[in-house]
């Protein structure tokens, strides 16, 4: 780390550093302090609040933890939340990866157009996008009107307040988070490698799975991490499109903190969400490192 910084300091940044007579750790101090004050300290406070038994936060104890983990219903909620993340990751990969492959082969002018279309949803607030899906998926919404109009169905499909509808809408809402890292990594792929693979007799599918996919793994893993973290915590989408019959951890956190004002229990549920999502993310990162490790070995 110090060596890389030393190498960097030989270029532009070096003169400023020499002028200010600062070490690397001193330059990183403002951000580190902000991180400690605005992220680490509140997180520790959350951990502290979780170790109280009552909603008035007066009796320390493990009561809230026992209450939450003593109820089998909550294990189902944790499982459903993580499963929702996994399903959304799978659908975004299935649709996003081919789109990224199309992107890298497009001429530069069309690439700009495609990037604009991909980034366009991000220009709208996620709340607006979520409510727009009610209009699309509703009983009298676009999908049902089109399908009934062409005569494929006679009764409207139930898409809103179902997991299918939720995954469909989350796929669109989270798609930019998958596509942007993927495209960023895949654009830097050396096209000679694909040509070399073809020249050596590999079919297009073999080239895809043995050359392109492993090389694009960092972008794919980054996209999966972002989509997973975002979809498991997407409270607005889960409750507005999924409804209250699909119960995930963010809904429980909202109920305990802003409806019932039981802060210790809300802290317990929040920490459970953080730990469970981070565990899956750590596993994904590990798998990503393992699969791309052999490329540079």
């Amino acid at each position: 780390m110090t060596m890389t910084l030393a190498a960097a300091s030989e270029t532009g940044g070096g003169s400023l550093r020499r002028y200010l007579k600062l070490d690397a750790w001193q330059l990183a101090l403002p951000l580190a302090l902000a991180f400690a004050a605005l992220f680490v300290a509140p997180l520790l406070l959350l951990v502290g609040v979780s170790f109280f038994n009552d909603d008035k936060i007066t009796q320390p104890g493990f009561g809230s933890w026992i209450k939450f983990f003593g109820d089998p219903f909550n294990y189902k909620v944790i499982g459903d939340t993580l499963l929702l993340g996994v399903k959304t990751v799978c659908t975004t990969v299935l649709i996003g990866y081919p789109l990224a492959l199309v992107y890298i082969d497009l001429p530069s002018r069309l690439q700009k157009v495609l990037i604009f279309i991909i980034v366009l949803p991000l220009l709208l607030s996620v709340v607006v996008r979520t409510f727009a899906w009610i209009v699309v998926l509703g009983r009298e919404g676009m999908v049902n009107q089109v399908l009934q109009g062409i005569g494929i169905i006679s009764e409207p499909l139930r898409l809103l307040q179902t997991e299918l509808g939720l995954v469909i809408s989350l796929t669109q809402i989270e798609m930019p988070l998958m596509l942007l890292p993927l495209i960023s990594v895949m654009s830097r792929l050396d096209p000679n490698l694909r040509d070399a693979s073809a020249a050596l007799g590999a079919s297009r599918w073999r080239t895809l799975f043995t050359v392109i996919v492993p090389l694009s793994m960092p972008g794919l893993v980054a996209g999966c991490l972002l989509v997973f973290a975002s979809s498991t915590t997407a409270f607005i989408s889960q409750t507005v499109i999924g409804g209250v019959r699909l119960i995930y951890l963010p809904l429980l956190i909202w109920q305990q903190s802003l409806v019932v004002y039981n802060w210790p229990l809300a802290a317990v549920i929040s920490l459970s969400l953080v730990v469970s999502v981070l565990s899956v993310i750590a596993a994904l990162s590990y798998m990503g490192r393992r699969s791309s490790g052999h490329l540079h070995g």
Partner: peptide, 10 residues
């Protein structure tokens, strides 16, 4: 969310 669902005919 209920008024929105009512308005959309849900």
């Amino acid at each position: 969310a209920m008024p929105g669902l009512f308005q959309q005919g849900q």
